[in-house]
Design a protein around this nucleic acid. Structure first.
Lengths: 338, 338
DNA sequence: CTGAAAGCGCTTACAG
DNA sequence: CTGAAAGCGCTTACAG
């Protein structure tokens, strides 16, 4: 059992030699097995198997002048996009693409620049940005670019903003519980998703005739949730908080407790993302389950369609978010300042 | 401002043409600028800049017969490894490698198979496994493979197991608080890190002359933590739980509350990973901060060293974990069954 | 210090 | 249905 030698992979010529045909024929076999005479096909098949032959993708790329490579750009240090990334890269692989992951230090601007650079390098056929690139006006480009975060922007155009129904459902539910005054703690406004949640929040409050004590801009951090609550005036009549993610929500809960308010007794709090931890906290966190795998998959599909010049697929329903009700919400207290 | 045309990148011949030299000279310039006569260098430099020339990496690979590609293998659907991944890929880029991300559906076995396949493909120069590949005996291979999760195994050999000091510190601290009977809820035992934490837990309990009510094998889930606590007998004298991660810990806390125990009043609980949410839960979670970036970076460094045939770098101190004490721990209750 | 030539492993017209 | 030839864009001996 000594197979230590760095076995050099077989070449197409070796396969051809073993099969007793020209390498042209082997190449043809690789492209379309049915273009060969059955007898020939069998011979080639055998040789390929025997030699465990795999075409040298680099040579193929060189010849076809197609890199067959896609880049996925993400923010260095962010750990959240893992699931989108793995779904997206799987989808790309299935479509025959190799996926280069580019992790960029810095903010949306740094990411946009890196993308610019990737475009100019001319060595990737498409780019998927998982982390926001700050919604720069997308110029006409030689290379298709899809930004996961701004996926919602497309939906908006179609009147189907993915976050919209969830935000609306949350507020309607809270309202049916008796809540009248709300607070939104928003996420980083360079993210389309953060802007969307905020604007749908404001629209919904308005259209339902409810009151908003504000929509505080945050940075997705727990601290921003904490601060938003602790800076509320003592006589605030906010009884429900809609946070842009679970971390903010947890910070808000902590902030409420720090002022002696109970959750959900005095304050109801909603998060977003269905972070696993939130199922086990006390109170467990009401939230919105997001199908990250579907997001990654769908975004990659759109990119593939753009690359092929096919019509971009309709946004699928699978990415519609799902509201989960847990312990962090309840009817408002009969009298807030009792 | 119309730059819509898919500008084909300039070739080395075009640069040579503009510079008035042979393409051989341009290539030489790319390898080592000082090998050119200053006057020539200037001309080439100018042409490269003017044309925004970037060597076609595919052609270069083909010629040098080096793919310059590394693969990072991770489990599909896992979202946690994002930070390790982004640090690892950045390190690889800096060293001039392209990083292909391969996300594999299924368990450690599926990942090991996929790696086998990547090795045979002969198209990557090294492989980094972020998710555990089940500690298969590593055979001699033509392609270096580094498994992040088993990094600890190397440390073990060096008597410096990364988790060891943290587990020991946790138990010593809890013991100094007065705790005598412990429970460990372990992680998925296909992970080296899970096995390590468990074994160090057992060793430490033993060497300090403490008692363990068990080391329950889990699957990293919150539910496993919950179940471990709810299945404890009513007269259990466990007062401290060391969980293999934060999710398990939060499940354990939830389990304790569900039986009417308070945390940390009746039970102290320790997690692992310093999940951001745990800073804001109530009680906030005592945990171990892990430097995932450093882990990813160091693992990639080891891979690069193996590829180059250099001595594998000493494990750095940066990966030593840092214990964080928060509200989830306290002295044990004077009488457990009071 | 610089250039002409060969060749990396494929694919794709073009003939037959 | 199959093969001989050209060529993708580079790098690397080999001459000069």
């Amino acid at each position: 059992m000594s197979e230590a030698r760095p076995k050099r992979p077989a070449t197409i010529h070796e396969v051809a030699g073993l099969a007793g045909v020209s390498h042209t024929t082997v190449s043809r076999y690789l492209q379309d097995k049915d273009s060969l005479k059955p007898k020939t096909r069998i011979k080639v098949e055998f040789a390929v198997k025997t030699l465990d032959y795999r075409p040298n993708l680099v040579a193929r790329s060189m010849r076809t002048r197609r890199s067959n490579r896609l880049a996925i750009v993400l923010a260095a240090g962010s750990y959240f996009p893992g699931r989108q990334l793995s779904a997206a890269s799987e989808t790309a692989h299935r479509a025959g693409y190799q996926v280069e992951v580019v992790s960029v230090e810095g903010g949306p601007r740094a990411r946009a620049e890196r993308i610019e650079d990737l475009v100019r390098s001319g060595q990737v056929e498409g780019i998927l940005a998982i982390s926001s690139i700050g919604g720069k006006g997308r110029r006409t480009r030689s290379v298709p670019i899809v930004e996961i975060d701004s996926y919602d922007e497309q939906l908006h155009v179609l009147g189907e903003l993915a976050d919209a129904s969830a935000v609306r459902e949350i507020i309607e539910h809270l309202s049916s519980l008796g809540h009248r005054t709300f607070l939104h703690v928003a996420g980083d406004q360079t993210f389309t998703s953060a802007r969307n949640r905020k604007s749908v929040y404001l629209e919904t409050i308005e259209s339902l005739g409810l009151r908003s004590a504000g929509a505080v801009d945050g940075d997705w951090s727990g601290q921003s949730g904490f601060d938003a609550i602790t800076s509320l005036p003592d006589d605030s009549d906010v009884t429900a908080v809609v946070a842009a993610n679970d971390l903010i929500a947890m910070g808000a809960i902590r902030g409420a407790l720090s002022r002696g308010w109970t959750v959900p007794g005095d304050l109801s709090v909603f998060g977003w993302n269905d972070d696993e931890l939130g199922r086990f906290t006390t109170p467990s966190l009401s939230t919105v389950a997001v199908d990250f795998e579907a997001q990654g998959h769908d975004a990659m599909h759109r990119l593939l369609a753009e690359i092929r010049g096919e019509p971009v697929p309709e946004p699928s329903n699978r990415t519609v978010n799902h509201v989960i009700y847990r312990e962090s919400i309840a009817p408002p207290p009969p009298d807030r300042h009792a």
